[in-house]
Amino acid sequence: MEELVLNLKKQIIEALNLADMTPEDIEDDAPLFGEGLGLDSIDALELIVMMEREYGIRIKDPSAGKEIFKSVNTMAEFVKANRTK
């Protein structure tokens, strides 16, 4: 799980062009959208693409992203339960 969390952070940084950040800057439980990292709806779309590319998970409804992308931890839980690769 720890490895998955670290990988997710690296993938988030890459997918969202967060060039100035390192995985250490992202807390496992901190909100990614709004108050926390300050991501927006386009970032959510990028994360949906990333989930399919990296883990073979297809998210069809963009509004489902709200729950899944709450924090790195919620993403990791979701990946663990749904990954196909």
Partner: peptide, 9 residues
């Protein structure tokens, strides 16, 4: 498939 929305936007 898997095209980046940011590029299009």
């Amino acid at each position: 498939e898997l095209l980046k929305p940011t590029y299009f936007m």
